[in-house]
């Protein structure tokens, strides 16, 4: 035999059944007596099996390997071993298999056939998580925890804002209800005043069609001077003005002296006792009369039955709510 390279290709051809019968006989006789050639044959055979298991053979070599070389059951068993350990090694190398006791990279102290060291180590097969993936998972868990924390804080803040908003909404709702109530009352008052106005207009029309003498008997005029006004701030003695209402009277016209003021208009409310409202007017404009100012209020006579009445006078400024100016007291007598 010549060089090792020549031997290698010759051995491969021998193992794959590519030698002629003469070549076969000669080669076999050689390795029967040549120790080195026989050892080389064994090594090449092992490498051939490993190469097949790892897919390193050419297509032609694979065909020969499967049809010729693998006829022996011992070789099939060797191939099963090579396939298993190749898969195992590749899984270990690619990281789909993790050993908790991974050997050091320094191989200078390798002891072959060392069976004394049988210390078991945990090995996880395919499907287990490699080390770098475990670190990624831990990092992801930390990031997730931070995000959850931020979201929890944000959620708490939003809940607090929601509670405050709900409270604000409830307060606004109460104010709106109160405003609605006031609006309703105002509407009711306006409606009442419109009815009163219609009633007065109707009576005035009737009076216009009455003879002049009759008019004198049907309209009763009464002046309520400042001396009858019991003021809120200035106070004053309560004086009661008597009003005689004849049977034919249809309308009572009250003329009120009001003190000089900056009120734009006045509201008047006539009532019997605290709750029995008789008549009301709002937005009355005072007309100047010398150093005083006067207000006129017409009330249908039929509304004034005998009894004590209270007339409340309120002034309405240009801005803001009406203010009570004072009270007049009346005693109605029906003849």
């Amino acid at each position: 035999m010549s060089s090792p390279n020549d031997n290698h290709s010759l051995i491969v051809d021998y193992l794959l059944g590519r030698l002629s019968e003469t070549e076969l006989d000669r080669f076999e006789r050689d390795y029967l007596t040549n120790e080195n050639l026989f050892n080389e044959l064994q090594e090449v055979e092992e490498e051939l099996i490993d190469d097949y298991a790892s897919g390193a053979l050419t297509a032609d070599q694979r065909v020969s390997f499967e049809k010729y070389f693998l006829r022996s059951s011992q070789r099939q068993e060797k191939l099963a071993f090579a396939t298993a350990i190749t898969e195992r090694a590749r899984a270990w190398q690619s990281g789909t298999l993790v050993s908790t006791e991974r050997p050091p990279r320094d191989l200078t102290s390798v002891e072959l056939s060392d069976r004394s060291n049988s210390k078991l180590h945990s090995v996880f097969w395919k499907g287990s998580v490699p080390a770098w993936r475990q670190w990624v998972a831990i990092a992801a868990a930390v990031v997730l925890a931070v995000i959850i924390g931020v979201l929890w804080l944000r959620n708490r803040e939003l809940q607090r804002q929601l509670i405050a908003t709900n409270a604000n909404y409830a307060r606004l709702r109460q104010e709106a209800d109160a405003q609605s109530k006031i609006t309703a009352e105002t509407k009711a008052e306006l409606s009442a005043e419109q009815q009163q106005t219609q009633m007065l207009e109707s009576q005035v029309e009737q009076l216009q069609t009455s003879p002049p003498d009759d008019i004198r008997d049907t309209i009763v005029n009464l002046l309520l001077g400042l001396d009858y006004l019991v003021g809120i701030t200035r106070g004053g003695e309560k004086k009661v003005r008597t009003l005689d209402v004849p049977p034919k009277a249809r309308l009572v016209r009250l003329t009120l002296d009001v003190p000089a003021s900056s009120f734009e208009s006045f509201n008047i409310l006539l009532r019997r006792g605290e709750k029995n409202l008789v008549w009301r007017r709002s937005g009355l404009k005072a007309r100047p009369a010398g150093d005083r100012r006067k207000l006129s209020l017409s009330v249908p006579a039929e509304h004034l039955t005998a009894g004590d009445y209270e007339l409340l006078l309120s002034g309405v400024p240009s801005e803001g709510d009406a203010e009570l100016v004072g009270r007049y007291y009346l005693k109605v007598q029906r003849r």
């Binding site: 195992r88 056939s113 049988s118």
Partner: peptide, 27 residues
């Protein structure tokens, strides 16, 4: 595979490293 794993565990770490390196190599 199971038997292989059992037998690999009986090797020293260095021997195991060597054989796995060999079989993981690009042939």
């Amino acid at each position: 595979h199971l038997c292989l794993e059992t037998c690999l565990q009986q090797l020293s770490p260095e021997s195991r490293q060597l054989i796995l390196d060999y079989y993981a190599e690009d042939k």
